[in-house]
Design a protein around this nucleic acid. Sequence first.
DNA 1: CGTTATTTTGACGCTATTCAAAACCAGTGG
DNA 2: CCACTGGTTTTGAATAGCGTCAAAATAACG
Lengths: 250, 250
Amino acid sequence: MLNERSLTVHQDCDQCPIRHRAVCARCESDELERLEEIKYYRKFEAGQMVIWSGDKMDFVGSVVSGIASLTQTMEDGRTQMVGLLLPSDFVGRPGRLTAAYDVIATTDLVMCCFRKSPFEEMMLRTPHIAQRLLEMTLDELDAAREWMLVLGRKTAREKIASLLAIIARRDASLHMTTRAQDGSVAFELPLTREAMADYLGLTLETVSRQISALKKDGVIVLAGKRHVTVPDLERLMEEAGDDTDGGMLV
Amino acid sequence: MLNERSLTVHQDCDQCPIRHRAVCARCESDELERLEEIKYYRKFEAGQMVIWSGDKMDFVGSVVSGIASLTQTMEDGRTQMVGLLLPSDFVGRPGRLTAAYDVIATTDLVMCCFRKSPFEEMMLRTPHIAQRLLEMTLDELDAAREWMLVLGRKTAREKIASLLAIIARRDASLHMTTRAQDGSVAFELPLTREAMADYLGLTLETVSRQISALKKDGVIVLAGKRHVTVPDLERLMEEAGDDTDGGMLV
DNA sequence: CGTTATTTTGACGCTATTCAAAACCAGTGG
DNA sequence: CCACTGGTTTTGAATAGCGTCAAAATAACG
């Protein structure tokens, strides 16, 4: 089901926005050249399915721009988001035939794809790729485990605060975003209430209620439904139940 | 705080019970020899702390026998287990200075340790180690994500059933365990009710109640508090809310 | 046999879910 | 410009499920 918009022209790795963070981050120029031979871009519109759980995976790749989600679904329809894929994040698992999760484009999405078997071959010959992938996978594992604490032990209010804090932090690190001199942070919510609920293990009604509560209590300020301003990030982190006095992850 | 029992004699890798599954699984004999130079064994008693979150990590290693748990704790004492470390599982994260989680010996535990910086050095020169570690980390990531569904979306009863199913499956794969001809499976629970609660994001009272309920409904049979018999594994999987018709993870 | 840890059971309360309806919003076409 | 549509979000009321507190029962241990 490729429409015209799902294919894009070849683009140079040098000017790639995720050049220094993606799986190719450690590659030398000659290694990049070989990667360029097997890479191609694909575009997806918001809501589109990128990969179906159980399907054969014929490519792996990196998120270039936009957001995708990894979700798991039970027979009766309950769904849990198990990962949020941001620019530079890697999709797919070398060494496995079929996809374990649904991958859905949450926003409009551009991916840099590699056909799977050439990529796997190249990984064997190119330690720089395997090393970087290991590093990224370890980071993802940490993120997944951090999220297990959120899912297992936090209240609905803390869950919402945790999600907002994560988005705020990431947004701040990515593009030196709207961070006013008074220390307030502002960002656009990339997720619907339902997507937030699926990420947090809540219902969308509870998400809505808790956002309203945080707003009433002045922890956040809303402009429209999606634009969030956090006057005091420390306050938000406290609400999230996180160690406010500096994380120890060095 | 090393007591005498925490150190053990050097032992040959050839006869190691986790030789084919641990981080060293792909090593050639010459690579093993170099590993043997930097390895040493440590024993821990049930309940002992192996690593404290935030502490400097000066070693990494593999679980040889016994069970350890990775847990995260909030300031107010709420705790969530984020990983169950079984024989052959890897502990520690190359490339990071301090530990992100508490590691606790759930049962008596033997670990095969490597001093961290020699191991990191060796990883750079030995693709076989890095490759295997990547593979193991990807598996752990999958396990963590599977667990996110359990924590986020399953009921207390389903959570208990899921845990029992996991232990049963693993026990069956490890040592061709007590699997009677009628298809029933039996195993020893390696966790206290409290540890189960910490893993499942429940209270120990709820764990106890749900185990009683599963017992009353004939899904499991208890001999003592810890010895579990599962007459019908399919039935247990249904109770866990899992796809009973064969998982698609190939 | 007493002491302590672990587990079970009960009664009650609270949080989050469920079901339902209304408000809001963006887009489309008359 | 307005009415109509479908999707998203908010709000309300009632309920269920799990947590909390308390106490008893059981097992482990010296």
